[in-house]
């Protein structure tokens, strides 16, 4: 299978500060890739760089087509959905309005309505709260809403930024289970950024390790799980 996303020599900047230095990675179509690393290593920035949310240099290709330098709105329209850190919920809008916004760029109105119903089946709690302001949901519910909102795009590629952040272990488990299902059933490729390395490595098939803005290790999830250095620094055993 070919690569859905390739990045090479990717630099990223916040104002004058450079955060990524020549990062390169490749995502297998239909696979789950994870980016690991400590705080401030540049994981979130990598996702933002893919979406054109920060100033970048270098190349990013989606199915061979260059997308670097394009506006975020246009990258999204090409089928990349991004669940940002902090979940990006529209807190003052209702749950259903959040979902409708997820499908904003789609032209098929019936399809959007059908997808909302489908997601309600998958997440019955969202259905119960469909008329409620999204800001009143619990953290886990908001994370489900954020993933659902991203899925409303019918994305080819889903970028997930720390889906476990601030959630209770049981809920994290549930959410990772959902992500696995989405990947298998809908065939959505995923790029996952996680602090919780062992969880991420269990889910992913490939992994990259970032340190201070550079890729230091890359390989299959299994290989990295067994890497001595990774084990000590990130998995803690």
């Amino acid at each position: 299978m070919g690569a859905i996303l390739q990045a090479s020599n990717l630099d990223a900047f916040y104002g004058p500060t450079q955060v990524l230095f020549g990062v390169g990675f490749e995502l297998r179509e239909g696979g789950i890739t994870t980016i690991l690393g400590a705080n401030g290593a540049g994981k979130t920035t990598t996702l933002r760089a893919v979406c054109g949310m920060v100033r970048t240099a270098g190349e990013v290709r989606l199915k061979g087509e260059r997308i670097d330098g394009k506006a975020t709105e246009d990258i999204v329209r090409k089928g990349i959905a991004h669940v940002p850190d902090g979940r990006g919920t529209f807190t003052a809008l209702t749950v259903e309005e959040n979902l409708r916004l997820g499908g904003y760029v789609r032209k098929d109105r019936d399809g959007v309505a059908a997808d909302i119903e489908r997601l309600y089946e998958r997440f019955p709690r969202l259905k119960e709260r469909r008329r409620q302001q999204a800001g009143t949901l619990s953290g886990g519910e908001q994370q489900m809403l954020a993933i659902s909102r991203a899925l409303m795009l019918r994305p080819r590629l889903l970028l997930l930024d720390e889906p476990s952040f601030g959630l209770a272990p049981l809920i994290v488990k549930e959410i990772f289970e959902i992500m696995r299902t989405i990947n298998r059933e809908d065939g959505v490729s995923m790029l996952l950024v996680e602090q919780n390395a062992s969880l991420a490595l269990d889910l992913a098939d490939h992994a990259y390790l970032l340190e201070t803005g550079k890729v230091v290790i890359a390989g299959s999830a299994d290989a990295i799980k067994n890497d001595e250095q990774v084990r000590r620094s990130y998995l803690g055993y």
Partner: peptide
């Protein structure tokens, strides 16, 4: 920010 991420 979120709006851009849904393509608005």
């Amino acid at each position: 920010v979120s709006s851009r991420l849904v393509g608005i």
